[in-house]
Design a protein around this nucleic acid. Sequence first.
RNA 1: GGGCCCGUAGUUCAGUGGUUAGAACGAGCCGCUCAUAACGGUUAUGUCGCAGGUUCGAAUCCUGCCGGGCCUACCA
Length: 517
Amino acid sequence: MSGQSTFYVTTPIYYVNDVPHIGHAYATLACDVMARFKRLDGYDVHFLTGTDEHGQKVEKAAEVAGLSPQAFTDKVSQSFRDLIGVMNFTPDGFIRTTEKRHYAACQALWEKLVAAGDIYLGKYAGWYSVRDEAYYADSETEVGTDGKRRAGPVGNEVEWVEEPSYFFKLSAWGDRLLAFYDKNPRFIAPESRRNEVISFVKGGLQDLSVSRTSFSWGIPVPGDPKHIMYVWLDALTNYITECGYPDESNPLWRFWPADLHIIGKDIIRFHCVFWPAFLMAAGVAAPKRVFASGWWTTEGQKISKSLGNAIDPVAATAEFGLDPFRYFLLREVPFGNDGDFQRRALIGRLNADLANAYGNLCQRVLSIVAKNCGEKVPPKGTLVEADTVLLDRAKGLLAVVRAEFDEQAFHRALTSIWEVIADANRYVDAQAPWALAKTDPVRRDTVLWVLAETIRRVTLLVQPFMPDSTGKILDQLAVPVEARTFAAFDRELVSGTTLPKPQGVFPRFVEPAAAAS
RNA sequence: GGGCCCGUAGUUCAGUGGUUAGAACGAGCCGCUCAUAACGGUUAUGUCGCAGGUUCGAAUCCUGCCGGGCCUACCA
């Protein structure tokens, strides 16, 4: 037990200004699949998600809704919890930045940074738009023909504003960050993101304003409560709050440093530049890896509220089924790339990959077994070369899939698995067990055993992606629940085990219009 | 302006110097009949964005151009 390797994976904490959409579902799904895989592979896993609830925007949104910030965030945070059930996610923790433990962690981290000499009091100055309630960089503003400075050619008027602010000495961390990236080539993925970050850091870093006095919905700076901590310092800290920071005797501290932060590509800088700098300054180990996922578009168009083309995870799972939806999101697009959500493509995947290739393979094999082998796992006779070729491919899959998971290459893991499914379908045709039934029932039984055993192995590996459906298939193979981890990958099906009646798991999807005509 | 990534069959993509450029899906044809009209076999389709260059040899390296996406800091 104690020697077990740990694996800590996190989603971004979601900003409660928005209701959950496909972007949230996607990042959390990737973490869920990762967590499930590592659990099956014997790791001591901790999977964290949660909500980011501070900041000016939340304060304002609450006001508009006529609620206190706390009541408002309670409500919106719940909608993210609800998504967990809808998508069958399995987080071990759900953190909210409004929790007491998180205040304590943030303030402890702050004090560490002060003690290390990395925080000082200065003045934050910039072009401020009262209407936007936002600061703009000099380069973002321009002076119009009327002599007034605006945020862009058509933006609102800006004025020069200065407010006292604490700063983090980020400028001093450039070289150490570059050395860190150099020593940890796996820290940022995909590769192109790593290049972006490195070039950004090489361009020189400025000190970072890490407190605000213009609003109050946030975590007060220790010893100077007029100041509220910069939301990102607050938000990023959640990952160590969960582990008990600053109490390193907390049992969950064993999970730090995190193995994997999965994030959206919009927040790379915060995770790959600010976060390791904060941690190194505070003397805490930096996370091992940050993987930035891409964005989804719908039918080639950007998702936007005005177009009303957002993909609602609840609607999608209701129409296509949860597991096919989970499968599609991770199979269709290389993880890390942007993806286009096309209805036609989803239906194509559902029918070609799930109903035809995998579902039908299970069904055709299991129904022959049910009709010919007395509803029992058939006897495994002498294996010939064709049998061992197929079985060896299925056996070899675990190592292949494991390597792909270490790169978060979910689409490649699935491609590899589906190659064996295709092999199995070819094998069925080549061996023709329905013909053997008449000529050589012993051989037929062996063929069916080989197929059932191949389906078992494949299905064990598909579990993280489609937990419900694979559970049903393993039930139909009478694989005991305790024999569904990778430790049992080599525990072959036992001939003579009674099997339940087979039942299709992945029905074909037929468009309602087509079905009617 | 600077930087990063991409442009390969109808579609989605793989392929980073070496035989006639690959896969999947889709399409045509043939076969099979255990199965969810599923499965198998087979055929077809490409100026590898364009133009130069390096090389015995380039989709693959270099240069320029065209087209698309992204980054270029402090509202998540």
